[in-house]
C-alpha cells in the first residue's frame, strides 16, 4: 500500500514539475520559476485534500534522496571546467568568503534589530547554504533544523526569482560573477537557475555553493557563539 502511495506521489510531483516547466518556457517570467510554482501548487493541493506533509513525504522522501547524488554529480562539470577554476581560484575564494560573511552578519543583525526570538535567529542564520548543511549547523547551534530548512528554501527561491533581475540591473554579465552570486546566496536552487545561463555558470555556482557551505559551517557557529 505504501509503495503504491509513494509511486503516486512521485508521479504527481514529477507531472506538476513538468507542467510548470512548460508554462515557464512559454512565459519566462521570474515569478514563474518552476520550483516556486510547483511548490505552491502542491501545497495548495495538499491543503485542499486535507493531506499532511508527513503523508506527502511517503513519496517525497524518495525524490529528495536523489539530492545527495545530484550534489556529487557536480564533480563532472567542475572537472570539465578545471582550467577556469584553477585560473580564477583566488577571486572565487575571496568573493564567496565576502558574500558568506555579509550574509551571516546581515541576517543575524537584522533579526536582532527586529527583536526576533533567539531560536528563530539561530535557525535563520545558515540560510544561504544547502539544506542538509543548514540543518546540521542549526542543530549544532541550538536552532530548529526543520525551520532552518524552510529559511534555506526562502533564500533559494527568492534568489532564483530576483537574482537574475538584480544581476541584469547591475550589469553583471561575467559568467564567473553570475555563478558566484547565485551559488553563494541561493545554494542548489541558485545553481539550478545558473544552469539556465550555461554550463560554466552552473559549474562556478556549484563551487560557490560548496565553498559557502564550508565557510558557513566554520563561521556561523563561531559568530553565534560570540553573540549569544
Amino acid at each position: 500500500m505504501n509503495i503504491i502511495t509513494a509511486l503516486l506521489i512521485i508521479c504527481f510531483t514529477t507531472l506538476i514539475y513538468f507542467v510548470m516547466q512548460i508554462i515557464y518556457k512559454k512565459f519566462p517570467s521570474p515569478i514563474l520559476v518552476p520550483i516556486a510554482t510547483s511548490t505552491a501548487v502542491i501545497i495548495i493541493i495538499l491543503f485542499l485534500s486535507h493531506h499532511s506533509y508527513k503523508f506527502y513525504m511517503i513519496g517525497g522522501n524518495w525524490i529528495g534522496s536523489l539530492l545527495g547524488p545530484a550534489v556529487v554529480a557536480f564533480a563532472y562539470p567542475l572537472y570539465q571546467h578545471r582550467k577556469t577554476l584553477k585560473d580564477s581560484f583566488v577571486s572565487i575564494l575571496t568573493s564567496v568568503f565576502a558574500g558568506t560573511a555579509a550574509g551571516l552578519v546581515s541576517g543575524i543583525f537584522l533579526a536582532l534589530w527586529c527583536g526576533l526570538d533567539e531560536r528563530i535567529i539561530l535557525s535563520l542564520a545558515p540560510k544561504s547554504v544547502t539544506s542538509p548543511v543548514a540543518m546540521s549547523i542549526s542543530s549544532l547551534t541550538g536552532g530548529i533544523p526543520a525551520l532552518a530548512a524552510v529559511y534555506v528554501m526562502v533564500a533559494g527561491i527568492s534568489g532564483a526569482i530576483f537574482g537574475p533581475v538584480i544581476l541584469k540591473k547591475l550589469n553583471i554579465t561575467h559568467s564567473i560573477a553570475v555563478g558566484i552570486g547565485l551559488g553563494t546566496a541561493s545554494h542548489g536552487i541558485g545553481t539550478s537557475k545558473a544552469a539556465e545561463y550555461g554550463e560554466l555558470e552552473s559549474a562556478i555556482s556549484s563551487i560557490a555553493m560548496t565553498l559557502s557551505s564550508i565557510f558557513t559551517s566554520i563561521l556561523c557557529p563561531l559568530l553565534l557563539h560570540l553573540l549569544f
Binding site: 514539475y17 525524490i63 529528495g64 545530484a70 539544506s131 530548512a149
Partner: peptide
Amino acid sequence: LIKIMPLLFIPATVGA
C-alpha cells in the same frame, strides 16, 4: 541529475 535538480528540491520546499 543536474538537469532535474529543481525537481529534487520540491519535497523540501513543500515542507514550508
